[in-house]
């Protein structure tokens, strides 16, 4: 946790971002210690992976040194922070003790999920069950947030700044350099199928172990980002063209909401998966969670790759 303090002091933004990646990885391991494997998985792939890549992408387009802030401006923020901290210490001094099983948080709503998800939904990973079914509506909202961000980034920095008219077939010097690292290229080639396969495993195994649509989407995107970094943006664009991504961004949200509407049409409530299979509600739940996670996976991976393209394509 010293890394957070170091972030304050350092002025080199490149180092700040690297430290932030380390910090994310550390908090991910803290989450594992606290039994939150799904969360740890996500934090590691998002914080240490995708967020760092985006931030570096931004730095490449801007500057990497921070100016020294004027000293007189620091008093008020410091007071505000200390004030907030004081309220927090005040608030937590009465909070139920960490890890105590008799806390109210463990006794009201949560037990139903732990006991019920085996019989009502039939999915061993309770986090997946709560995420996709009991609180599935939150997850639809979450998918929409990601969708919003993608549209926002595309509106802001989508497409090249200048039209491609003066584009000559000259190649990027960096790309030329990359071509010399044949080992790197080979390893990427070997790793890529593994990463994508792992993403699919995470996608479809989310019911049983940690994982699910979101993590899978991010991993899938990370595989592509790696490919684009080593082989160049243009080649990545040929494999995964932007128009396909645009459809993917929308499609995932539509699948998710469509499953919800199907629930209504089949006589249940919105997002009621039980009615998807009239004979066996449990199977319906399975099917619903499967489809919904698929929607999340499609949207998230398409969004992450699109955002990466937007940042990477802006620089030229």
């Amino acid at each position: 946790m010293v890394t957070a303090l170091a972030v304050i002091r350092l002025r080199d933004l490149f180092a700040v971002i690297m430290l932030f990646g380390i910090y994310s990885l550390l908090s991910a391991s803290l989450f594992v210690v606290l039994d939150a494997v799904d969360v740890a998985f996500t934090e590691a792939s998002v914080g240490a992976g995708i967020a760092t890549v985006f931030m570096l992408g931004t730095l490449a387009l801007t500057k990497s040194r921070e100016k020294i802030p004027a000293a007189h401006k620091q008093v008020l923020p410091l007071l505000a922070v200390l004030g907030t901290g004081a309220v927090l210490i005040y608030g937590t001094s009465d909070i139920p003790y960490y890890g105590d099983p008799s806390n109210p948080i463990h006794h009201h709503v949560a037990p139903r999920y732990l006991e019920g998800s085996a019989t009502e939904i039939g999915v061993p990973n309770v986090v997946s069950a709560v995420l996709a079914s009991y609180r599935g509506y939150d997850t639809l909202g979450e998918t929409t947030v990601v969708f919003t961000a993608a549209i926002g980034v595309l509106v802001l920095i989508g497409g090249a700044r200048r039209p491609h008219s003066e584009e000559s077939p000259r190649s990027d010097p960096k790309q030329e350099l990359m071509k010399q690292y044949s080992i790197l290229r080979l390893i990427t080639k070997l790793l890529l199928p593994l990463i994508l396969l792992f993403a699919l495993y995470v996608q479809f195994h989310g019911d049983f172990g940690p994982g699910g649509g979101f993590q899978a989407g991010v991993i899938f995107a990370a595989g592509f980002v790696l490919y684009a970094l080593v082989y160049g943006l243009d080649q990545a664009r040929q494999i995964m063209p932007p128009w396909l991504l645009r459809i993917g961004i929308s499609l995932g949200v539509l699948i998710y909401a469509g499953v919800g509407v199907a629930g209504i049409l089949l006589g249940g409530a919105f997002l009621d998966y039980g009615v998807l299979d009239p004979h066996d509600p449990m199977h319906g739940q399975h099917l619903g969670i499967f489809l919904v996670e698929l929607g999340v996976g499609i949207t998230v991976s398409a969004v992450m790759i699109s955002i990466f393209y937007a940042f990477a394509g802006r620089g030229r």
Partner: peptide, 18 residues
Amino acid sequence: SNPVPHVLILTAIVVGIA
């Protein structure tokens, strides 16, 4: 462990990256 905070935080992480 209680799964509910995990679910909430999954959502919050996603919102954060967005």
